[in-house]
Nucleic acid binder design. Sequence first.
DNA 1: GGAAATATGTCAACATGGCTGACGTAAAAA
DNA 2: TTTTTACGTCAGCCATGTTGACATATTTCC
Lengths: 176, 176
Amino acid sequence: MPDSKTPSANPLFLREEELRQGIELLFFAYRDFTAEPDEMLAQYGFGRAHHRVIYFVGRNPRLPVSDLLAILKITKQSLSRVLSQLVQEGFVVQRPGTRDRRQRLLELTEKGEELERRLTENQRARFARAYRAAGADAVEGFRKVMLGLINAEDRRRFGSFEGPRAPEPARGQQEV
Amino acid sequence: MPDSKTPSANPLFLREEELRQGIELLFFAYRDFTAEPDEMLAQYGFGRAHHRVIYFVGRNPRLPVSDLLAILKITKQSLSRVLSQLVQEGFVVQRPGTRDRRQRLLELTEKGEELERRLTENQRARFARAYRAAGADAVEGFRKVMLGLINAEDRRRFGSFEGPRAPEPARGQQEV
DNA sequence: GGAAATATGTCAACATGGCTGACGTAAAAA
DNA sequence: TTTTTACGTCAGCCATGTTGACATATTTCC
């Protein structure tokens, strides 16, 4: 009978521990990563959902609504609530697409860009600290593991590394 | 004037891109990491908050309520709602502490452990795939970066590596 | 031994942000 | 010209976070 008190003698225990640690790292990292931006957003009467819209619109100017929905994986009704607010309060503008005039391409206003900068600066600084403390090789490892956690459909959003061919039922998602 | 169209000539652009990629990796990974457990939980009429309680109680049997609150960083009223449900429906039991009889130490029941296994198995499998595809060195790098993202107070929950001394106002958090 | 602090819980009210279902309009595609 | 697509809106439901006030049992401190 294997002795569960001596983990080094039991590779299965190690593996279990290693995997649970991954789960917990992700929980704590996400919790702390979002806490400070959440506080800033509250000053504007906004929440995390607003942040996500501002971030991805800032990152992809002239983003069609359908692409934003594919990124967020929420319903258009849920998006509508926060997006209308952002448009009404002058953080985001919608412009009809030229190729397809049904589209309403999303862009940040100057005001929106300013808020985006404030929010992203916080998260960027957190990553900069973490990357610097961990070193370049660690960053490459981080990228690889994170890509492996993401469903295959969305890995192409990032660079080269493909990640595992996971047993996930492909759901036919679009690209940005 | 530097040419922003040739990123390799502009280390600041590279850095910005690298950091934004980190931000996005975290968003997509968390989104996909929680999606399948969320579906399972819905079958029980539970949500992500229930999952977190089940996970951390399973991980730390005889966990005091105060410690759970320190992990989740939510109010006791918020916790109360989901915890009472879990107790009433027989997934969690509360037992008075022996050293301090004001405490109600939390434990999973057999039923609770079963649900915990189902949920964690999914997330464990996702990590196992990602770790396997990325390799052992990458996993070590992943750990380092993730630890650096987590506020200093909670890094001690994990093993050796300390991470950056960040300019964060220490808020005096307890340990599990 | 009595007062204060601590661990936990509860009620009430409110906000955010998911969801579904139903329906509407303009533009593109067949 | 019909159908499909992109987008939007209204209404209502649920989960999960918040604050504030208050209650109880137990421990700790003077």
